[in-house]
Each structure stands twice: as C-alpha cells, then as structure tokens.
Design a protein around this nucleic acid. Sequence first.
DNA 1: CGCCCTCCTGGGAGCGCTCCCACCTCCCTG
DNA 2: CAGGGAGGTGGGAGCGCTCCCAGGAGGGCG
Lengths: 345, 345
Amino acid sequence: MAAARARSGGRPTLEEVAARAGVGRGTASRVINGSPRVSDATREAVEAAVAELGYVPNRAARALAGNRTDAIALVVPEPETRFFAEPYFSAIVRGVGAALADTEMQLLLTLVGSDRERRRLAQYLTAHRVDGVLLVAVHAHDPLPELLEQLGMPCVISGARHAAETLPSVDSDNFEGARAAVDHLISRGRSRIATITGRLEVYGAQRRLDGYRAAISAAGLAPDERLIAPADFTEEGGARAMRDLLARRPGLDAVFVASDVMAAGARQVLREADRRIPEDVALVGFDDSVVARHMHPALTSVRQPIEEMGRRMARLLLDEIAGRAPDDERPSVVLPTELVVRASS
Amino acid sequence: MAAARARSGGRPTLEEVAARAGVGRGTASRVINGSPRVSDATREAVEAAVAELGYVPNRAARALAGNRTDAIALVVPEPETRFFAEPYFSAIVRGVGAALADTEMQLLLTLVGSDRERRRLAQYLTAHRVDGVLLVAVHAHDPLPELLEQLGMPCVISGARHAAETLPSVDSDNFEGARAAVDHLISRGRSRIATITGRLEVYGAQRRLDGYRAAISAAGLAPDERLIAPADFTEEGGARAMRDLLARRPGLDAVFVASDVMAAGARQVLREADRRIPEDVALVGFDDSVVARHMHPALTSVRQPIEEMGRRMARLLLDEIAGRAPDDERPSVVLPTELVVRASS
DNA sequence: CGCCCTCCTGGGAGCGCTCCCACCTCCCTG
DNA sequence: CAGGGAGGTGGGAGCGCTCCCAGGAGGGCG
C-alpha cells in the first residue's frame, strides 16, 4: 500500500508539463504562476498540457522553494472553545472559508490549550510555516500578538484588545449595538434600565457598557451605578447579577444584558421572582445566538455579523501577507450590528 | 550565510544541528525521527544541539522528501455548516484537536461548497497533499468516499451511511439512544407515544426510528404507523409533523423527536394547541443541544458524545495512515449515548 | 546596415529534508 | 587470531518547485 502511494502519488510534475508543452521548466512555471513575461502561444500550450495531464502543483515543493506556504492558521484558544460552542465559531470559520475559497490559501486550525503551550505557539507557527495568523478571542494581556509581531508574522485579531489597538483587527460595533439596544428600551417607555456586563477586562464588554451609559445620559435619564451589575459572560454569572440587581433596585423595568447566555441566567431569576417578561421587565441580550431565538419569550438581541467578520479578517490578513495596504488604509474594521426585536422587549 | 538564514526565516537547519552536535546530517535526522539505530551518546549530543538552537524541522522539506505531509483534512460540506451551527461542529473539532495534540499532525479545514466542488475535492486533496481525510456528514450517495478509496487515501467518516458501511466510521448508538428515550417515556406511564423522524435517507435517522419501534413492541404496545411522522431535521419540519400528528392522533401523550431542533418546532405547535408539557404531552429530543437546555420546559434529550466521536475519528485515521490495524479490528466505532432527563418528560 | 534594447526562454542552483548505500568499528565466533 | 556479523555513522542523491542568470531572437533607431 505504501508502495502504491509511492513517491509523488503518480501525479505529474512541472517537468512533465513542460515536456508535453514543448517548453522549459522555467517557462511552464511562469505560466502557472501567471507571470506576464510569456508569449500567448506558449501560455496556451502550457495551459493545454496542464489540462491534459491534470497537473496540480506540489505544495510542499512550492513551499520549500518559495519560502512561503500558502497557508494561514486560525488559532483558537482551547479554554475558550466551550464558550464558543455558540454558532460564533462555525460562523467565523464559514466566513474565513468563504474569503479563502477562490484563493490558493489553505486553512490550518490550531487549538491552543495551556498558557505555556500558547507561549510556544509563535515558534511553532513559524516553524510549521504559515504565512499568517488569525487570532480569535485574545485577551488584553496575551503574549501571543507581541511574539508574532516580533517575528514579523502577519496577524489579524478578532476584537480589539483596547482602545489603542495597534494590530489589524476586526470587531463589531459593540458601542453602537449596546446604545441601540438601550435606545430601543427607552423608546418602549422604560426608564429604570439596568445592565449586566461581561468581564470588563474584555474590551468589547467595556464598550457595551459605554454604549449603555451613553444611551442613558443621552435620554436624560439619571445614571445610577447601582443599576450596573458586572458579570462574566456565563449563565450562572448572569443569574447572580440579576439577583443582585433585584435586591438593590427592585423597581427596575428593563435589563440590557451583554450576552444572550447571561440573559438566559437572568431570565431564570426573573421567572423565579415572578416578574413577567416583558410586562414587568423588558430584556435585551447580545449576540443573537440560538439561545435568544428559543428562549421564552423569544429574546430581543443585538446581532453581530460574525460570518462577515470572518470574511474581513481573512481579507485583511491576505492583504497584509501580500504586502498590500488594505483598501481602507487603517487596518482595522468595525462592523455594524443589528437589533433583532422579539417578544422580550 | 546571513542571506541563507534570512531565507529560511532565520531558523536553524538540520545541517546546523548536525554540525553543532559534531555528527553527520543523517545521524541527526535519525535522532530527530526516533530511530533506534543511534548510540546513546550521539543521541544526547544531538538532542542538546536541538535544544540549544531551538531547532524545529521544516515541514515543507519533510513533506517533499518524505512524500507525506503530517497533515489531515477535516472536510465539512458547506451547505451543512449552518445546520451545524450547533455545538456539533466545534465539539468535533475539539475532539479531533485533542487527539492530534501530542502528534505532529496538523489539521486542515476544508469547506466544500457545491456538489461540483465536492467532486473535484478528491484531486484537490491528493494534490494539496494530506495524509488522510476526516469526512463529516456524508450522504449515502456522496461520490466522495468512493473517490478517496480509489485514490487509496485513508479516510474516516462520521456516521455510517448504511447498515453495510465499509468505510471506517464513528457513530453514536442511534438505535439504543432512541430506544432508551422511548423506554423512559413508557416508564413514565405514557402509552400513546408518537415519533417525529429525521430524513430517513440519513441512516442515523432510520436507526432512531428503528429504536423507537423496538421499544414500542418490546413494551407490548400496539405499533401504530400513524403515530410516526417523517420530517427533515428542521424546526419548520418538526412543527409540520407535529401538526399532522395532532390531527391524526389527538390522543397522543408523548412524542419522541429525532432532533432537538425539530422538538423546538413541535413544542411551538403543542403550545399553540394548548397542550401542556409534560402534563398532557411528554417530549423527548435528540442531541442534547443548547436548544434543549434553554427550552421551556427544559427538554429531555439524548446526548451524543460528540467530542469523543471527534477523538475517535482522529485516532482511527491515524491508525489507518500508519498502516496499523485499529485496536479493535473492525474499523468502526459506535459510541453509547446518554439520556438526559429534564422537565419535559 | 549595424548596434542595442526588449522580450522570451532554458535550465542551473538551490530550498531542507529523508532514504539508502557504503563504510567503519567492534566484538563475537570458530 | 582471522573472518564475519551487527551496530553506528556519513553523506550522496534526489523530492518538485522557484529564483535568477545567461543567452537567443527580433525590431527600432542612429
């Protein structure tokens, strides 16, 4: 069996294509790589030979000779994966895949486990030779981005790490999303609007809180710090925060929750406290995940264009690899969100 | 020299390691590949040199010289991806990743769009050189597996395509899962138990139906074909089937639904028909997805060990690539399911 | 009418590794 | 004490490609 797959697996080589087309190897290579310095006749001859032989370049040889790999890595922190079980992950992958579809680039999936592993990853990536890295869900203090930068490895991250993000990044407009959500609650006549935040070290969570605050003061409502309950993006955290809120401000009439999962926790607590949704308390989530659609009542939520984010990340990275300046000069993209109104508000 | 090192990204080569260890290139290679034909002293010298230089083998060169790639592809049919948005996909990936973690294997993610693209994929895969393929969600009539077999490309699929599956496959025990679900309903005193099936061309859906039938007759209940409603794994399909069921057999007191998503559709219809869950109608789903946990009332469901399935698929494939016979001779694995009882039954 | 420039073209020289063959020690046999 | 393994070892010969340097063939200009 190993013998059957012997050597090149029976695939034609560039040399064979060149011979068939009656040209030299160099010329054949030029045609295949789209160099303009080839006469039309030659180009056609080579293309015909390629078609007849079903030639496909050997990636390994190309990588070795050309010192590039035509591959990029999508790095996913393993601990986060579960948190990712949400469509988030597959949507990102779908977007990246779509952007790469008509490219020769292939996608490597790398799950990073421990923090030690993460520190070794940079070396690993350069050694295993990828042309660039897509980094998903990096924390503000993650050493990885700096390491990659030192190595000169092109890299795009999802979600800015802080206001002064230097790395190319793709993010959704957390601020505007949150503001729109709270504006919506206000327009529904709510005035004692609380919020449950995500982990505030995460810049996106901070931005959502900023958006909440902006909407509150823009509406002339009195800011009330006790209407703000920090949590951690988990269902339990959401429940805990809701309990705190109810204890501190029993009169609240709406809650903007910074994630659907936390909203699920909050809803549970509201039900136990016999508050009707939306009659007594209106609820708005963030992410527009499956959970939102299947909650009862269905949850109003802020949708992020996740697939599009994946697509843009890939495009940004390809630009960076090619040495092209991205179209819009500043290599960071913020995509608009959309409020999906359902029964909970 | 500086130029040479610049090309290779500044990374040391085998040659340099050999020089530093005071041995030949061949010997250094032997140490790095764990050949036994090396003296202890030499081995230590080489290992020291590797550590000092931070040497990591160049994958491309290895692939080219060794005619293998140390990479496997996970092929995901793009049309299905959305259906996959469920944790399914990330769980499989996590399992595969875990199995590959202490291997040199890397994971390539390949999304396949159209059917034409799928037909071209086999060539693509051999050309782009992977050692094996993990095929997720193949249909019974998909040409891909046969193509891969012809090419002698090792391959493992998730979910048998029919009873006489020839390819190595990993599946969960759909039959027993369904039977356990229906047994559970019977033990709760239900006797007019309906079922909503998935697309019966999908072998797993067929097996779930078989399990339902087996449980019904084992309990001495009268089989009733009008209690069986075929659907298509979608929420709308589940709703439609539930409506049919209600029309045909208004007296039903339980429904075993072959997927959580369809169960969500069914629940909606039951609510509109003012049937209380579980008092009037008990409901059991399949997959134990997020939807199940967040449904109201929370849905009893059959959990599949998806992450473990990913792990096993990877292991099976690695065995096949290595030419090893898998431990348990028959290269197909059926993993047990687990009934997660919640409020809906 | 000759010279030079431009446009193509062929093929040598690697890229860093694995495979394999030759060879060189020892050390165990007869 | 010679002969022959067996255990280690070095390095040549590629793997299939890209890069780049010569060099041939035309065509425009002085």
